[in-house]
Computed example of a mutant assay.
Amino acid sequence: MDKNQIVKSNQVIEASYQLSAVEQRIVLAAICRIPKSQEITDDVLYPVSVHELQLLGVHEKTAYRDLKEGINRLYDRSINLTIENKSIKMRWVQEIQFLDSQGTIGIRFSKPILPFISNLSREFTKYALSDIAGINSGYGIRIYELLVQYKSIGKRELSVESMRKMLELGTKYPLFADFKKRVIDTAVEQINEYSPLEVKYEQKKTGRKVTHICFSFKEKARKISQLNPDSSTDKFYKLTDSQINMFGNQLCQLPELSHLAVGNQSYEALASKIKEMLRDPVQQKQFIPHLKNLGFKP
């Protein structure tokens, strides 16, 4: 089995929890380290390196900082599972270690969660770690997993209520228009941009209220650039320092990019992060539509 393959119990895919994109990348990179054909114990420390996060789209200048901050937050995170009509709350991690000299952290998963992140469970979902590289929305990664569960069918209908519960939105985005814009649209845009899936969705109403989201999706056709590595249809815009400074300060104020902020990160810190991302050929792509809206002319 591919060492970069993610295997998760469907109960975990549909569980209630909220992790940032970086926290999810750390969890997924560690899951890849779990032997898929061996008995799982909670005695093993699974390493995650800065390099692995960089491969998943984290900028090299912030990768180790993001790794350390992400694992510290992850240590306090929990997940709520429903098993045989019982609601069970458990922690993701019971121990973390820092190997600063190696640019690596170590994760010891909590014992209760191990059966749900291995293929020893009867029902599980598989996908490649590279599928979510570039998706920097925590909601995007979660929704991608929910769709991959139904990959053989190509359709999935989810109630707005169940999605809010799974994403642990609580009182966040109470208006459907905000939920659609900042959760659904952001997720679908990034899934279409970076993952192997091409996704569309429709809204389903009960009376006058939108109550369900009906997703339809399929594997993307292979691009010419994938068939011929020497050709490329992706364009990177080399912005001047003044352009990066100006647009970085504007982009950090956009509500639809608020998911890039870490914790209570200030606008100044977020602007600095976005400016670095604008210099990166891979990460710059997500900002192009916003740049054009702000007046950028390629």
Score class of each variant (00 low, 15 high):
105 I>S: 13
107 I>T: 11
110 S>G: 12
110 S>E: 08
111 K>C: 05
113 I>A: 12
114 L>S: 08
114 L>K: 05
114 L>A: 04
114 L>W: 04
114 L>D: 04
114 L>C: 09
115 P>V: 10
116 F>T: 06
118 S>I: 11
118 S>H: 10
121 S>F: 08
121 S>W: 06
123 E>I: 12
123 E>G: 10
123 E>A: 05
123 E>M: 09
125 T>L: 00
126 K>E: 14
130 S>R: 05
130 S>Y: 09
131 D>E: 06
132 I>L: 03
133 A>P: 01
135 I>C: 02
137 S>G: 15
138 G>N: 12
139 Y>L: 00
139 Y>S: 01
139 Y>A: 03
140 G>R: 03
142 R>G: 13
142 R>M: 14
143 I>V: 15
146 L>T: 14
146 L>S: 15
147 L>R: 10
147 L>W: 13
149 Q>G: 06
150 Y>M: 04
156 R>S: 12
156 R>V: 14
157 E>K: 15
157 E>S: 11
160 V>W: 07
161 E>R: 06
162 S>G: 03
162 S>P: 06
163 M>N: 03
163 M>E: 02
166 M>Y: 05
167 L>T: 05
169 L>Q: 01
170 G>K: 04
171 T>I: 01
171 T>Y: 02
172 K>W: 04
174 P>V: 15
175 L>S: 15
176 F>Y: 15
177 A>Q: 15
177 A>L: 14
179 F>N: 00
179 F>Q: 00
179 F>D: 00
183 V>R: 09
185 D>Q: 05
187 A>F: 05
188 V>P: 00
188 V>F: 11
188 V>C: 06
188 V>L: 10
188 V>Q: 04
189 E>F: 11
189 E>N: 02
189 E>D: 05
190 Q>N: 07
190 Q>G: 09
